[in-house]
Design a protein around this nucleic acid. Structure first.
Lengths: 151, 151
DNA sequence: GTGAATTGAGTTGTGTGCAATTCAATAGCG
DNA sequence: CGCTATTGAATTGCACACAACTCAATTCAC
């Protein structure tokens, strides 16, 4: 492949990823608006809902940050907004007071039941519910492993 | 698939896309820092470099926005930064003074020569240069078509 | 035990994304 | 021609991302 061709935008996997990611987020927006959440807030809630069933030893900001690959600079204000919405409780850890432990409120736990139907509608609209999407997931897994492992 | 499983974060294609996209951008960062560009600025430059060879009828903010799926709210300040860096010229269109036409400066055009080697290094590090990534690209194409077509 | 290094959140500053709005310029229509 | 609708940028406001930094709490080395 020539140098010029290699630099063409359409050839750039990076741009496709970036564009596809933003397109998916745009697709989620109407559904999330009806829940009063932004997309990163929704991802944080997904993790907290998972943790309701199998909580880690320390459900802290750090643990959430590792799960989402986001740092405290992003998560602290985001979690304060979720707290302000009455969905999440933040509490200083004991005995380690550096940690902030996260827990769902009743409203936060209840919100999960409203997500399923909306998500199905979106997946259906995006044509994602069946077929070759498993392969895409696996390739993204591989890409992530490459980038976080060797990068 | 059960409802709970469907909501598991790992199953969410949306999260994988989001995480992979950010990981790729993180990977590009050191290379782009040496060029003095952010990632969206780099994408804009890619388009302008392409247009140097085959410019559209109107290389305007609108045309760039359609190429990158970004609106003027994002592009106007971004392009002002590129102008301030001396890489891009912005000029009100004639005869239509609503349009803003974009052109590379000499420095902006010259910057392209510094990208190739750096990009190769990154692609290599990410294991992206050959092999099964074409399939990933195609699947992202399909996903984008689904989301922008029917969404 | 005590001082140095580390760790977990939080803060600050810059640069996106994107909805909503504004505004001037142009196009469309009778 | 005059009037309205549309269009292209720009602006505003909010919420991320993320680097760099601060600070208090804890851990480690000796």
């Amino acid at each position: 492949m020539s140098e010029d061709a290699a630099l063409r935008l359409d050839e750039q996997l990076c741009f496709k990823l970036y564009a596809a990611s933003r397109a998916v987020i745009r697709g989620y927006r109407p559904m999330l608006e009806s829940l009063g959440l932004t997309y990163p807030q929704y991802l944080a809630m997904l993790v907290l809902w998972e943790w309701r069933d199998a909580p880690p030893a320390h459900p802290t900001v750090k643990a959430l940050g590792e799960r989402l690959a986001l740092d405290s600079g992003t998560l602290t204000p985001l979690l304060k907004r979720l707290e302000h919405l009455g969905l999440v409780q933040r509490q200083r850890g004991r005995p380690d007071e550096r940690e902030v432990h996260l827990a769902l409120t009743e409203a936060g736990a209840a919100l999960r039941d409203r997500v399923g139907p909306l998500r199905d509608a979106l997946m259906c609209r995006a044509g994602l519910e069946r077929g070759g999407l498993g392969a895409l997931r696996e390739q993204l897994d591989g890409l992530l492993a490459q980038l976080t492992g060797s990068g």
